[in-house]
């Protein structure tokens, strides 16, 4: 049995909250540079240039890339042989978010309830997804999620008879209706299969992939490619100003499902696509 002090988790989360909000990943930066080279709409190019300049200014001054520093979405894959000491894991994560959003001058956007709507003042609670995995490490991903793109996401319980075609139609329709609102060029995360909740979590997790990385199943990878081409034909363009660069990637994950089910979830991420992952190793006692 290996152990890990909860304080280390807090520190790590705090650090990731600040960095991922202020520094655009190289993967996204180079994808946006490619988009700028490929874009033919003058307004679209103008938007992409602005987005790239923004990334420079943000990193140099450690100013958040976007004022909506998001809901703190955390994925934690916890090794089943790891023992966390010195505190409650969920509280350690929330404390990291609290400190990161306060010390990093990030915006606190969380309200205490959907109807009471009083700001909690420290951007907690985080939305945490746990997985139990083999081993004695913990892999933590911090993925602050802006609401402009989150609000354009959707779930549909398709009928199995609708098949792949029906699923594709729903995905393209969701992106088409989202238009300019999610700050394109976007990343489209798709989860198909399982139950309603399973599909939604898969869609969110699919947003964490690096651009350029496909689903390992070549058939699904081909669907991703086809969807990306179709979406980029919609004409929405960067920031919705019109153009050819509407999405950077479509990432689809699938899961076994019920004989009567075909759930599909589409989670849209904006161009800043913030996420960062760190693995912490347990120490021998």
């Amino acid at each position: 049995m290996k152990t890990l002090d909860a304080k280390i988790i807090t520190e790590t989360i705090k650090d990731m909250c600040i960095k991922t909000n202020c520094i655009m990943s190289e993967n996204i930066k180079s994808t946006l540079e490619d988009a700028l080279n490929a874009e033919i709409s003058p307004q679209g190019c103008e938007a992409l240039e602005c987005i790239l300049t923004n990334a420079d200014i943000a990193e140099k001054g450690m100013i958040p890339l976007c004022q909506d520093t998001g809901t703190a979405v955390i994925f934690a894959a916890v090794g089943q042989d790891l023992h966390i000491t010195g505190g409650d894991l969920t509280e350690a994560i929330n404390e990291g978010v609290r400190e990161g959003y306060t010390d990093g001058y990030l915006r606190k956007s969380i309200v205490d309830g959907p109807f009471s709507r009083k700001n909690t003042g420290d951007n907690t609670p985080a939305v945490i997804h746990y997985d139990i995995v083999p081993g004695s490490d913990i892999t933590i991903t911090v993925a602050p999620k802006g609401q402009g793109s989150e609000n354009m996401s959707a779930v549909k319980m398709c009928k199995p008879a609708e098949g792949l075609k029906g699923v594709e139609e729903f995905i393209v329709k969701t992106v088409s209706e989202a238009g300019a609102n999610p700050c394109p060029p976007i990343i489209v995360g798709v989860g198909v299969g399982g139950t309603m909740d399973k599909a939604a979590v898969m869609a969110k997790k699919a947003l964490l992939r690096e651009v350029g990385e496909h689903n390992p199943d070549p058939e699904i990878a081909a669907v991703e490619d086809e969807l990306l081409t179709r979406i980029n034909k919609l004409g929405i363009g960067p920031e919705g100003y019109g153009g050819t660069q509407t999405a950077m990637a479509v990432n689809m994950d699938v899961y076994p499902t019920h004989i009567a089910a075909l759930p599909v979830a589409v989670n849209i991420n904006c161009h800043i696509s913030r996420h960062m992952t760190v693995t912490l190793c347990g120490k021998e006692q």
Binding site: G235, G237, G242, T244
Partner: peptide, 27 residues
């Protein structure tokens, strides 16, 4: 950028239409 002008012209609609049509030809 001017998104919607006083006459009600909407860049989101105009821009999209322009490149939606073009796309078929290009890709």
């Amino acid at each position: 950028i001017v998104l919607i002008d006083r006459q009600g012209n909407d860049l989101y609609k105009i821009g999209r239409k322009k490149y939606e049509c073009l796309e078929e030809g290009i890709l």
